[in-house]
Design a protein around this nucleic acid. Structure first.
Lengths: 245, 245
DNA sequence: CGACCGATTGACTATTTTCAAGTGGTGTGG
DNA sequence: CCACACCACTTGAAAATAGTCAATCGGTCG
């Protein structure tokens, strides 16, 4: 169960400069905020923020802290991870198109989430056209990222998918997010083998086999759940056709 | 090469009521239109409207007539079809997020396309906030559809993907689009086996084998490139696990 | 210490791809 | 009008790939 942490304080929000309000001058936000009943919710790792199919007309969300996985599933339980959210990401915005949630959002770590009532958001949007542009820009980026994943899933072989994933991880926001508040060199990426599989359309065993092989051949190392690339060129040569990774 | 057919006439546009301007009263459109330099372009089947990686800052497009495929490809030539566009669809809008085109758009049939200069569109958006909502709503629908495809590609087996595709086809806008201007009962879906494969992440042979099998077993018929479902329940029973289609 | 749970590994199986040959329809040129 | 080429599609056999099932490992926590 989510735990209500506090009323929202947009001005002091840790992700304000990465949120959909990042373009607004402080006074605009100040004005709008009066009738903007945001709330900050805490979720424990594993808890769901919303479920695929639920009514989405009430609220959208911004992730303040932690990581969230967005998933879709088949009636028989097979799961596909759609994307991983990092701090500042807007999510659960299906209500802007009069829809139910098209996917499930689940905390991968302990999370803090800012709940944005759509009714209040509509008010802010009306007074600040920049917010619309900011939301649009995020939607387009989501769409681009999802199209990229489509290519990964539809056109690549298992080893290529997994190698691309590892290589992109090393430069991604997910990694920065994990390193941000943390001096430790090796940070745990909170994805199990089974979740990596659910992201790439592979089984746990296939993921495990390739990773083991690459560790034996010295391309990667793993410590406390964190994967580190030792020899990117070797990995690409072994796993990828024609620069596909 | 595209052929310039005419200056745009938004008011008499055949897809006006399905476009991003469908919510605008006629007088607003009349006003805005003065400085809106749309043009209608004709493309032959097989021609590209834009290519993955090209600069997208100039224009977005609306499809007026015909069908378009949106594709992404790997350096070695493997192709993934991302979606199929029908009349009224907005596309090529990456420029709204300051990006290059993330994919290629290619005419599947002879097409008519309305080119929307982004600079002029910005003007219309400023004066008509409803247009923003309409664009957003389309972006969200695109995103939902693409997420659905991710589940198809990542979690389903070949027979399930193909059966879902055929079943959805029978109720889709693509089929309606093809039937619209045409009295013929059997209308050709302009997708080759290889394109069906590129859409579902399968080879031409795998597609062909399942279709042949299902024809032999009387679940489907095919005439002049058009697939018709005879026994949906039989098809589902044969091809799909646990209601996955 | 023992239970538990995720990860690994092996052996086997199923699925899908690859490669290759053949079919059938369409359109062109003799 | 026929012969031929072309091209998409089909089919078969073999190979590669990924999945399934089952045993085991290894770390963590009570």
């Amino acid at each position: 169960m989510p735990h209500l942490k506090a009323k929202g304080h947009c001005l002091s929000c840790p992700v304000r400069n990465r949120s959909i309000f990042s373009d607004l001058p402080e006074e605009s936000l100040n004005l709008s905020i009066k009738n903007f009943h945001t709330s900050v919710l805490s979720y424990d790792s594993g808890e769901s923020i919303f479920l695929q199919g639920e009514n989405s007309s009430e609220s959208a969300y911004t992730l303040r802290k932690g990581l969230i996985k967005i998933t879709k599933s088949l009636p028989d339980g097979r799961v596909q991870i759609v994307r991983i959210l990092v701090a500042g990401d807007l999510f659960g915005f299906d209500g802007l198109a009069d829809e139910t949630y098209n996917h499930t959002a689940t905390a991968l770590t302990n999370c803090e989430v800012c709940r944005l009532p759509l009714a209040d958001l509509a008010e802010v949007r009306k007074n600040n056209p920049k917010v619309d542009s900011s939301i649009m820009s995020r939607l387009i980026k989501n769409l681009r990222q999802t199209e990229d994943m489509l290519l990964e899933l539809g056109a690549k072989k298992a080893s290529e998918k997994l190698a691309s994933f590892i290589l992109s991880l090393s430069q991604s926001d997910i990694r920065s997010e994990l390193n941000k508040n943390d001096e430790i060199q090796w940070v745990v990426l909170p994805l199990s083998r089974s979740e990596i599989g659910a992201l790439l359309g592979l089984t746990i065993e296939t993921v495990s086999r390739f990773l083991s092989d690459w560790k034996r051949r010295g391309f990667i190392k793993e410590s406390r759940g964190n994967i580190q690339i030792i020899d990117a060129d070797g990995l690409k040569a072994a796993a990828c056709l024609d620069g596909s990774c």
